[in-house]
Nucleic acid binder design. Sequence first.
DNA 1: ATATTAAAAGATAATAATTATCATTCATAA
DNA 2: TTATGAATGATAATTATTATCTTTTAATAT
Lengths: 147, 147
Amino acid sequence: MADPKQRFETIIQKLRDSGHKVTPQRLAIAEILSKSEGHPSVENIYEQIKKNFPTMSLATVYRNIILIKALGEVLELGFPDGSNRYDGNKPYPHPHVICIKCKKILDPHLDSLDEMKKEVAVETDFKILSHRLDFFGICSDCMKENA
Amino acid sequence: MADPKQRFETIIQKLRDSGHKVTPQRLAIAEILSKSEGHPSVENIYEQIKKNFPTMSLATVYRNIILIKALGEVLELGFPDGSNRYDGNKPYPHPHVICIKCKKILDPHLDSLDEMKKEVAVETDFKILSHRLDFFGICSDCMKENA
DNA sequence: ATATTAAAAGATAATAATTATCATTCATAA
DNA sequence: TTATGAATGATAATTATTATCTTTTAATAT
C-alpha cells in the first residue's frame, strides 16, 4: 500500500498541473481515493463524503472520478454484474482477489506476473501494455460462517 | 477452438438435462454461442438472430444468456466501459490477449496460471473458484501499420 | 393425434447506473 | 476586489438490464 498522504498530494498536484480548480469537493474525493479502503464504489464514496459534507452531489463524484481517471490517478475495476470499484491508492494495473460473498477485495503479491507477461508477449507477438487479473473465491471469514 | 457442433450439442443437452424446454429461440441462441465468433454482445446476438427470426425478443436473448450462464455453458466478459461480451465456445475462464487498436482477441496458452492460482490461495487464505485474466496491447499487424 | 399444463416467449414497463443539462456558486488570477 | 470561466448541485435524459404480464408453445399423458 502506498502512503495515502503521498497519494493525496500527487492527485491534487495532477489536478493543479492540468489546470483544474481545487475545490473542497475534489479534496474530499481525493482524500478517500488516496486510501481507497476496501476499493470503494461511487455510491460508497458519495455516502462517506455526505456525512461531513451534506451538499455533495452524486454527479460531482461521478464527474471527478472520470477526471481523476483521465489523469491516470485512479484505477477503475468494472465487474460482470455491472458494478464499478475504484483504487486511487494503487492506480496502476495489479491483481485482485475478490470474495464473491462479502465482496471484499485484496491485493495479493505475485512475483510471477511479470514473467507471465513476457511469456504471453513471446507467444502472441503482441506488445503488452496493460493487464487485468482477478481471482474470485471465498475468503476465510465467509468460509467460517458457512461451517 | 472447440468444435462448434459439439459445443452446440452440449449446450442443448444441458438444457434438457436441467429440465428446460428446447425452443427454436434457444436453438438459435445456442447456435451462435457455440461459435461465439468475435465474442458477441447481447445486442449483436439479438441482431444476428433477428435476420432469420424476426419475432425474436431482446428479453429472450437476455433471459437465455442468464440461463446458459447458470448452466456454466457461456463465459461472460465484462469490460471496463460497461460492455459485456460472451464466449460459449470456451465457456470456462481463460486468458485473453486483446489488441487495443483492432480489438482482435487471442487465447494464449499459459502453463503458469495454475501455479499462480495456488500461490494466491496460499497467500490470501481464499478458496479460489474462478479468475479473469486479460492482457491488453498492440498486435504485430497493427504494429507494422504504425511503422 | 389431441388435450393438458407448466414453462417460455414477446411486448413493454420498471429499475438502476451513469451521463447530460442548466442555472447558480465559487476558485483563481488580474 | 472583482471578473470570469469552471465547477457544483439538482434533476432530467439515457442506456442497459430486469421484471411483469398476457399469449403462445413444447413436452407429456391420454
